[in-house]
């Protein structure tokens, strides 16, 4: 028995969410008194693969087939499921990323395994049971799911587990898979990545704005504040519906659910559907000219006032804070 973790890369590089997932999987392996193996697919440097040992994976399986250099959902799922079987893995952990959401359900079916998606905590393993806490009702609640199958799969939400570093370099082993032609019915034509922007679902800091900003021409100050803080930008639904901002920035019940350390809401009223997607943020700041805005009820810090006066002040304050630190 062992635990297997899929370590996702973006253009050959590991991201923070990958280290979160390994740290989490290592703790699960410790809980079960077993060892952790990682599997990487794609074009990642030997050095980066070895460095995974630091987060607790003593062994790394490396799949570097030419055919698998770019992501093919079906084929990746086959390789990971095959590795899980060969390694005798009883638990498979992935990130609940866009990619993980495409992979985990397929692996679950292949291994006839129960899947806990959107996990936010370590499983509880008392009395031989395996129970995972996950978000439900679009962030309005949590659900506890017992995985009753022999093999269990967990997809971990970003920003839900702290990265732990204490191991030594991993042993990297090449892993050759029995590729199956029927797995290659999709082909990536193009990947467009806005490299200068922080990705919203994984962001630690988010600056978000709503209809109170009056129009798209006023977003320069939102972006400036976000850039200075190293934050991702987000918006409310009517803002993206009106085309002021792209749909990818829309957070809430019918948009992206975020769980950053800091969520700054500017000119957003705090409708129940919006709050659903942001309520697991650690710290919430609300800036609204209406003292009765419902958002203040769930805020940690609030400022009542006009965004057009307050945001420029915050920008100046961040600049001077940065020049002093």
């Amino acid at each position: 028995m062992s635990v297997l973790v899929y370590v996702e890369n973006a253009d050959g590089k590991f991201k923070k969410s990958t280290y979160e997932v390994i740290s989490y999987a290592k703790t699960v392996a410790d809980q079960l008194n077993t060892h952790l193996t990682a599997i990487s697919i794609g074009d990642v440097s030997h050095e980066d693969l070895e460095s995974l040992g630091k987060y607790g994976s003593a062994k790394v399986l490396n799949v570097s087939d030419e055919q698998l250099k770019t992501f093919v959902n079906q084929a990746y799922a086959s390789v990971i499921a095959e590795a899980a079987s060969k390694e005798g893995a009883k638990v498979v952990v992935l990130a609940n990323s866009f990619t993980g959401k495409g992979l985990a359900p397929r692996i679950a079916v292949k291994l006839q395994a129960g899947l806990a998606d959107s996990a936010v905590e370590l499983p509880s393993t008392d009395d031989g049971k395996f129970i995972v806490k996950k978000t439900a009702f679009s962030g309005k609640a949590f659900a506890f799911i017992e995985l009753t199958s022999d093999v269990k799969i967990i997809a971990l939400n970003p920003n839900s587990y702290k990265v732990v570093e204490n191991g030594s370099p991993a042993t990297v082993v090449d892993f050759a898979s029995d590729s199956n032609e029927s797995d290659f019915k999709t082909m990536v034509k193009e990947i467009v990545r806005a490299t200068d922007k922080v990705s919203l679902p994984e962001a630690e800091l988010v600056v978000s704005a709503g209809r109170g900003m009056k129009g798209p021409e006023n977003w320069a100050m939102i972006e400036e504040l976000a850039d200075l803080l190293g934050a991702a930008t987000a918006c409310s639904k009517p803002v993206s519906d009106a085309g002021w901002r792209p749909h990818e920035e829309h957070v809430g019940q019918t948009g992206i659910a975020v769980s950053p350390n800091l969520y700054i809401a500017i000119g957003i009223s705090g409708a129940i559907q919006h709050l659903a997607g942001v309520s697991s943020s650690k710290t919430i700041v609300v800036i609204n000219k209406d003292p009765e805005a419902p958002f203040f009820k769930v805020a940690d810090y609030g400022i009542v006032g006009d965004a057009f006066e307050i945001v420029p002040k915050l920008i100046e304050a961040v600049k001077s804070y940065k020049s002093n630190s």
Partner: peptide, 8 residues
């Protein structure tokens, strides 16, 4: 995809 899109 995180921070972008993929066309396939």
């Amino acid at each position: 995809i995180e921070g972008g899109k993929e066309i396939l």
